[in-house]
Design a protein around this nucleic acid. Structure first.
Ligand SMILES: NC(=O)c1ccc[n+]([C@@H]2O[C@H](COP(=O)([O-])OP(=O)(O)OC[C@H]3O[C@@H](n4cnc5c(N)ncnc54)[C@H](O)[C@@H]3O)[C@@H](O)[C@H]2O)c1
Ligand SMILES: NC(=O)c1ccc[n+]([C@@H]2O[C@H](COP(=O)([O-])OP(=O)(O)OC[C@H]3O[C@@H](n4cnc5c(N)ncnc54)[C@H](O)[C@@H]3O)[C@@H](O)[C@H]2O)c1
Lengths: 210, 210
DNA sequence: GATAGATAGTGATATAATGAACAATAAAAA
DNA sequence: TTTTTATTGTTCATTATATCACTATCTATC
């Protein structure tokens, strides 16, 4: 197995390229150059070509890339040529926003189960998905072969939920609680920390000081 | 002006350290070593010391760091020793989650105005803040000397909102719409792309292929 | 066909970030 | 005091990432 190390920054950019190509494709444009992609997403043309070069040769010299083809290739690379089953735990304000967000489904992320401890919530239905009590998490997630878990519970409860998700066999967790989670090495974990984003901004605003 | 370049990764970690220190401080712990911080947030001890070294000497050799002091220093570095005025545009599902989130206020981010085109929404009040129509954005944001704008409108409207925010004098924008925005170089811009986060996960799950 | 113009792919180079090692130094113990 | 122990601050090496410059190759035109 060739284990060529791909920078995470490259993956993030690929995701952005693919979104941009979707937009370009909608306008009916057939061919695009690395320079035009670069322009559209705010990076250098060399960067675009380098990123793509990790995965093969998708363009034609002197011409550029076929928009539809390149888009399809990138989606394949990102693992988006198939649907993913996602569970969300914690149907608070943020959890509700995420479950009702159309953009996820468009990219193949299907929320197949929702859990919350609040008995009032664990009786409702969101987009045709029942909200269930925590006790059923392991069972249901196992049964659905759900691969991805989203955590939107208060920080204090997040580690417990992560443990349950791991027990239920998820392969990846997206955590919105502002806390450092411990999971086995084979589980992919990403933290989305919204406050941190604001703090990077405030640092940069005041960065003259250094 | 000494323009020492600080890696963005350092800033993100500082934010995480400060949050961890808040937690440690609550437990009444007075002193902490770089190794303990590292353990708590999942990085290497050398990394912790390196990150801090950009800004000064905060520890005592042979002893470690005073928790309260270090926390205060980091908050100062991040620009969190003062409050920030924030405006949010687009009171949809995500916008509502963000405006009602307590964690921002705790770190000094005060949402001082909210705007939405929907006349039904532009009459309500969230946490004592009136929701106003877009027409008032420039005026109100200017008057409040608001420094930070959060964009949670549909992608198609995001660039317009960014332009208005710039016109109104914000210094930084946090954009949740999945689109690449153009703003003047002096404006700090960060994009939070939630779908990208899921896609990094799916890439990594399937990364055996490369 | 041959030639010109455009643009992808790529190896070399530069820059940045991380990691490991260690000297400096403060506190505690002898 | 002196010695030992702990742990920082910092240097140097390594690794990772981005940029640059060049070569290969395609299309269109003469
Ligand atoms: N709302 C935001 O904009 C925002 C921003 C940044 C971070 N976050 C983080 O996201 C998480 C959720 O935020 P929120 O604003 O939606 O909070 P919320 O209080 O609105 O929602 C939390 C939900 O989790 C449920 N819950 C509590 N304990 C649970 C458990 N053990 N198992 C299952 N469900 C449980 C609650 O019933 C509630 O429905 C928090 O960790 C918060 O810090 C939120
Ligand atoms: N909801 C999520 O979980 C989620 C996740 C990822 C990205 N996003 C992005 O965040 C943005 C908002 O998402 P959402 O789910 O809250 O959408 P939403 O449709 O629930 O809310 C959008 C809000 O913006 C308002 N609006 C529309 N045009 C406007 C304009 N020109 N000026 C001011 N307000 C305007 C609408 O009235 C509505 O209240 C979108 O760009 C979406 O792609 C959302």
């Amino acid at each position: 197995m060739k284990t060529l190390k791909i920078p995470e920054a490259t993956i993030i950019r690929l995701s952005v390229y693919s979104r941009y190509l979707t937009e370009v494709d909608r306008k009916g444009i057939v061919t695009i150059s690395s320079g035009e992609i670069a322009e559209g997403v705010g990076v250098s043309p060399a960067q675009v070509r380098k990123d793509l070069a990790y995965f093969g040769e998708f363009g034609t010299r002197g011409v550029g890339y076929n928009v539809k083809d390149l888009r399809r290739h990138i989606l394949k690379i990102l693992g988006l040529s198939v649907d993913w089953s996602v569970t969300l735990v914690g149907l608070g304000n943020l959890g509700l926003a995420l479950t009702t967000y159309k953009g996820f489904r468009e990219r193949g992320f299907i929320i197949t189960s929702i859990f919350d401890t609040d008995p009032g919530k664990a009786a409702t239905k969101i987009n045709g998905v029942d909200v269930m009590p925590l006790e059923r998490l392991v069972e249901v997630v196992k049964q659905n072969r759900t691969q991805i878990g989203i955590i939107t519970v208060p920080a204090a409860a997040a580690q417990d939920i992560a443990d349950m998700m791991v027990k239920a066999g998820v392969q990846a967790i997206l955590n919105f609680a502002p806390v450092v989670l411990n999971v086995p090495a084979e589980i992919e974990l990403r933290n989305v920390d919204l406050a941190v984003n604001l703090e990077v901004l405030t640092f940069n605003i005041g960065a003259q000081r250094f």
